[in-house]
Design a protein around this nucleic acid. Structure first.
Lengths: 346, 346
DNA sequence: CTGAAAGCGCTAACAC
DNA sequence: GTGTTAGCGCTTTCAG
């Protein structure tokens, strides 16, 4: 189990040169079978593992990809969405043979102090950036760098590779579902318009409503920040305006909104219908179970890793974009399961 | 902003040798001030950053530390506790100039396939392991390796460095609080005894009760697995036995337990008192706000990073241990704020 | 104070 | 098929 063995050591032990050992390790063709197996035996016996650092120095690649989550998103990081995204990215990264480094920047200073070091140090083959803000300063900086970059979530500038889900279409779906169910006073707890996801979900929802001749009344829009607490507060602001259905732009906010409704003695879906977005486990376990729009979080993360590796190897070139479809998940919170009778028309 | 510059390039630009440039970069003494500033100017102007990989090859250190979270803890990962721990470790790691790599193992196969590569590849200076299980196979493997290792949470074997919080003492505090408040039928929603934290909190609680001549009745113990759902289920099992106070071994489980209580029409703290453990934000925002035992999650993570770096540099040697104190946080859920009258004696 | 030279462990021509 | 050689970009003796 001793470490610190080198190619040279293995060579000596197997009676061959270091090049031959290198060849068998890298599975190259031109090696005599008997020599190959002898070398493999020694490697096996000694537990030798190639020194990745030395290998990187010559190959110019490290196999390390960075996941950066910029500052001011700490409430976001507490959103289970992020846990799942990180899990998805981690799993894909493991599968692809990458090592994942995590860069959580707590504030602007840390961001500007650390970022250059991170990107120019040569340790990273590429970067995945998530939770981008509109006009993200980090993104501006990154775009000029020569390190391969993939964004999770649509960035607000062109020419960058990204993977996203169809937020716009999903929100339209939500609007359509609520209108089809006969609701009249439909509101939204929106996500911050400082994020593209927030913008896309809001616009999609408005468009979905408009398509059915039902403009969104300004009183029936309250903005949240993706946190449960903000969903609660936003719903409290909405309640006085007597919505009969509300679309929350994230499941986490929907859960907060549900509290507010319950606190006000309003039953879901009987008095007010409620929808979420994300399809997180929490939406299923809430009471009543939330109707929501499910997005493939894990797939998104996996695709980002794959896309990045393609960029790194040159299998793909600069801006490649993929948008995953989303899916309406009808559960109890909108009354779709109830008889066709509408609970309340106000 | 061009990259790929080498020490040699900078040397040429500044009219000195690469050794001299290396000296100024590493802040060594023997450099003529004028030469030093000339070199610094060139570095500034070109935006040169040393190639970390090359540097690592000679120094034998990479500055990368790994955080490994073993398999079967996915529900755990959804616990906000983990998000906070990761944030704490990340922040400390940034501060210390380390790069943090994340290893989330999804299952045993991934664990055994990836782990050897991770630890012997030479990329990691050291490892932080968290969410260890009793008789953790990963830990057994790690102990034999020569890579510096720090555990977050008490391991069930000796001779390993770790940082923990006083789970035992905290649970005793909880028991004492409940007894002092006059409760008679005190129960526990425990954490899995396959974890040392679960064991320590359970034992501490039992001991705290026993100390006051009040053994824990077997009917009043239900086991959870740290998830909200499990807290809910455990409490449902407890309710028929009519506890008048329940200590949940984590805030997340306490929130689940709260649902079960509410669903059963029991008021907290009027009908049943409820306590948590962790001091997560969720405990404060629940209704009623949870009395809990706060542990310094961020400090724990920071100390783990520092301890690991000490081990790596040799500033400390093998088993160093630190246990942080915890603190009782009295809020509304146990009725401590109410008049001295006891709500119900059954 | 500064430069030349060796070498970290590996890969990749290039010979034989 | 296999060994020899030359680096990858850096740090570090060792001379001067």
């Amino acid at each position: 189990m001793a470490e610190n063995l080198t190619l040279e050591d293995i060579g000596r032990l197997a009676g061959v040169s270091r090049s031959t050992v290198s060849r068998v390790i890298n599975g190259q063709a031109n090696v005599n079978p008997s020599v190959r197996s002898r070398v493999q035996e020694v490697i096996q016996r000694t537990g030798y593992t190639p020194n990745v650092v030395a290998r990187s120095l010559v190959s110019g690649r490290t196999g390390v990809i960075g996941l950066v989550i910029p500052s001011r998103v700490h409430s976001l990081f507490e959103d289970p969405y992020f846990s799942r995204l990180i899990q998805g990215i981690s799993a894909a990264s493991n599968r692809a043979g990458n090592t994942l480094s995590l860069f959580l920047f707590q504030n602007e200073e840390e961001e500007s102090a650390l970022y250059p070091r991170v990107v120019t140090s040569g340790v990273l083959d590429g970067l995945i950036l998530t939770a981008t803000r509109m006009a993200d300063p980090l993104l501006a900086r990154m775009a000029v760098g020569e390190i391969p970059l993939v964004i999770v979530g649509r960035p607000d500038v062109d020419g960058i590779s990204y993977v996203d889900v169809d937020n716009h279409g999903g929100a339209m779906l939500a609007a359509g579902h609520l209108v089809d169910l006969g609701y009249q006073r439909i509101g939204i707890v929106s996500a911050p318009t400082s994020t593209t996801a927030g913008v896309d979900r809001l616009n999609g929802f408005v468009e979905g409503l408009a398509l059915r001749g039902m403009p969104l009344h300004p009183d029936l829009r309250a903005d949240g920040d993706f946190s449960e607490e903000s969903g609660y507060q936003a719903m409290r602001r909405l309640i006085p305006h007597r919505p009969d259905a509300v679309f929350a732009a994230s499941d986490t906010m929907a859960v907060g909104a549900l509290w507010a409704l319950q606190e006000a003695g309003l039953r879901v879906p009987h008095d007010v219908a409620l929808m979420g977005f994300d399809g997180l486990p929490a939406s299923e376990k809430s009471n009543p179970a939330l109707t929501t729009v499910r997005q493939p979080v894990t797939d998104t993360g996996a695709r980002a890793v794959q896309m990045l590796n393609d960029l790194v190897t040159g299998a793909a070139t600069s801006p490649v974009v993929e948008v995953f479809p989303v899916e309406l998940v009808v559960r109890e919170s909108c009354g779709a399961m109830l008889a066709s009778s509408r609970p309340r028309t106000d």
